[in-house]
């Protein structure tokens, strides 16, 4: 394993962690799995593609992608998930799968099934010392990703809204009695999660400059896996899980003997961790109450 592989892994891990944060926050606060979260990345990628095609300004593309994803995330929550509040988790999960299919089908009807190239600006490759070869985009991903994660942690811990979020995730009814507007907190959670997904989609496009209707499904499932490994509902857990999965993926890809089995190894890690700790690395133990 070279240092380059490790840095590439950290950067991929940052992408996974950003997506995983969306899963984990929604799970913690709305107590549901937002299966359509991966497809929000895809919508973000297509927004970047369209904006670059029409206006050609990368900064505008970034802003539009975040705006579109935030609006979409909140709308999905209002239309598909809010009517099911209090229904069985299975029902909500199946609806979320339905939303995921809907987004993919619409994208395919609008843009076609083929992958289209996205014209983001190319970044130079840096040679540090003799061995270390790093793309600048990798460093940007790593830097911006870390800053966002630190900012999010501070926001949740220090701000009033963030503490309201923690309160809702711990006990929704009690939080409501204390004057927290639960519906607004849930909408805000979806908004933050979708914004992070939009940022992740831009980083993803910097690594692989193509987008297709199924772009979001694999990173989505991997990030979900990362969130579960870290303990779903736990914000530091999502970061740890994401980075772990990203580094493991890059290491496996760099070893020829393991290369074809990368996906299998990643999912096997998930199963092993869940066998040992059924609620993930940092997950809280669920007490069964009668």
């Amino acid at each position: 394993m070279t240092a380059t592989t490790f840095i590439d892994g950290l950067s991929l891990g940052a992408i996974y962690a950003l997506i995983a944060l969306g899963y984990t926050m929604v799970y913690g606060i709305a107590k549901m799995l937002n299966f359509a979260h991966g497809d929000i990345i895809m919508v973000g990628a297509y927004t970047v593609y369209s904006t670059l095609l029409w206006m050609g300004k990368p900064i505008l593309a970034v802003i539009f992608a975040i705006a579109v994803c935030v609006i979409l995330g909140v709308v999905i929550e209002k239309v598909a998930y809010k009517p099911l509040r209090g229904a069985s988790p299975l029902a909500v999960l199946i609806t979320a799968i339905g939303v995921s299919y809907l987004l993919q089908a619409i994208a395919q009807l609008a843009f076609g099934a083929k992958a289209v190239p996205v014209g983001l600006p190319r970044f130079p490759v840096l040679h540090i010392g003799d061995k270390l070869v790093v793309n600048v985009s990798t460093l940007i991903t790593l830097g911006v990703g870390s800053v966002l994660m630190i900012a999010l942690t501070l926001f949740i811990k220090k701000s009033k809204i963030g503490r309201a979020m923690i309160a809702v995730s711990e006990d929704r009814k009690a939080a409501q009695l204390m004057g927290v507007n639960v519906n607004r907190i849930i909408s805000l959670t979806f908004a933050i999660g979708s914004a992070l997904a939009a940022v992740a989609s831009i980083f993803y496009l910097m690594q692989i400059p193509n987008t297709s209707p199924t772009l979001g499904s694999m990173p989505g499932i991997k990030a979900f896996t990362a969130a579960v490994i870290g303990g779903i509902g736990s914000i530091p857990g999502a970061m740890i899980g994401g980075v772990l999965l990203g580094v493991v993926e890059k290491i496996c890809l760099s070893i020829p003997a393991l290369n074809p089995y990368t996906t299998a190894i990643e999912f096997a890690i998930l199963i092993v961790i869940l066998m040992v700790r059924p609620t993930g690395i940092l997950g809280k133990k669920i007490r069964e109450k009668v």
Partner: peptide, 26 residues
């Protein structure tokens, strides 16, 4: 070709409508 996506559109609507119809209090 790309119209094949209509199949998934139909699936998505089946899943969402069935679940919402059966489970949503509204």
């Amino acid at each position: 070709g790309d119209q094949a996506a209509i199949k998934y559109l139909v699936y998505a609507l089946i899943l969402m409508v069935t679940i919402l119809f059966n489970n949503a209090p509204a």
